[in-house]
Simulated scan of single mutants.
Amino acid sequence: MHSWLIGYDITCPRRLQRVHRVMVNYATPIEYSVFLLVGSEKDLAHCLAAINTRIDARTDDVRCYPLPTRGLQERVGCSTLPTGIQWSALPAGLWLG
């Protein structure tokens, strides 16, 4: 299993909604247009292929960054979850605070 951070900037609201609907099928939303995909390279390829059919490559921007397996994963600032609630679908380092 690998982890990737995928973010996008979509210029058309309609395409933005379509890309978001695709992304929630493959990855966990971290912010509105930033997702964490945990899976195989094949999972990543399927996700990016699905997104590619829904964007305009001339104006939209999709970026994917691999996260190191044993790298530091930290969250600072206000938690998006109530105190005492931990979402186990995220790697431990993202929800420990």
Rank of each mutant, 00 (worst) to 15 (best):
V38S: 15
R15G: 06
A27R: 02
R21Q: 07
S40E: 09
A27F: 01
Y32H: 09
C12A: 02
R15F: 06
S40I: 04
L48T: 14
Q17Y: 00
V22N: 09
C47A: 14
Y32S: 08
S40N: 09
L36F: 11
R21F: 00
Y8W: 08
P13W: 06
V24I: 14
P29I: 10
V24Q: 09
A50S: 15
H46N: 15
C47F: 12
H46A: 15
E31H: 12
P13K: 00
A27N: 02
L44M: 09
S40V: 07
D43Q: 13
G39V: 03
A27P: 03
I10E: 01
S33K: 01
N25Y: 05
D43P: 10
L36H: 12
S33M: 01
V24W: 05
P29K: 01
A45D: 15
T11R: 10
R15T: 04
I30D: 08
A49R: 14
A50N: 10
F35T: 00
R14C: 00
A50Y: 06
I30C: 08
S40C: 03
T28K: 11
K42N: 15
V34C: 03
V34H: 00
E41V: 04
S40Q: 07
R15V: 06
C12P: 00
K42P: 03
P29D: 12
T11A: 11
S33R: 03
H46Y: 14
M23V: 05
A27H: 02
Y8M: 06
L16T: 01
V34L: 08
A49V: 13
H20Q: 03
P13L: 02
P29C: 06
I30M: 14
E41W: 00
V19E: 02
A50H: 08
A49I: 11
A45F: 11
G39M: 07
Q17C: 00
N25V: 01
R14P: 00
I30R: 02
F35V: 02
A45S: 15
M23C: 09
T28D: 13
F35H: 04
A45E: 13
R18C: 07
T11N: 08
A50D: 15
L16A: 05
L44E: 07
R21S: 11
L48P: 14
S33P: 02
I10R: 05
D9H: 05
P13H: 06
Q17W: 00
A45I: 11
V22R: 10
V22F: 12
S33Y: 04
I10L: 05
D43H: 13
P13E: 03
K42T: 14
C12M: 04
L36E: 15
P13Q: 05
L16N: 07
L48Y: 14
N25M: 12
E41C: 01
L44P: 07
R15A: 07
D43W: 10
M23E: 06
A50M: 06
T11V: 04
E41P: 00
D43G: 14
N25L: 12
A50V: 06
L37Y: 11
A27G: 09
L37I: 10
V38Q: 11
V19S: 05
I30F: 13
M23S: 06
I30E: 12
R14V: 08
P29F: 12
L16H: 08
M23T: 04
S33L: 03
F35W: 03
A49H: 13
Q17D: 06
A50R: 08
D9Y: 01
T11Y: 02
R18M: 10
R18Q: 13
H20M: 01
G39F: 04
H46V: 14
V24T: 12
P13N: 02
R14S: 03
H46K: 14
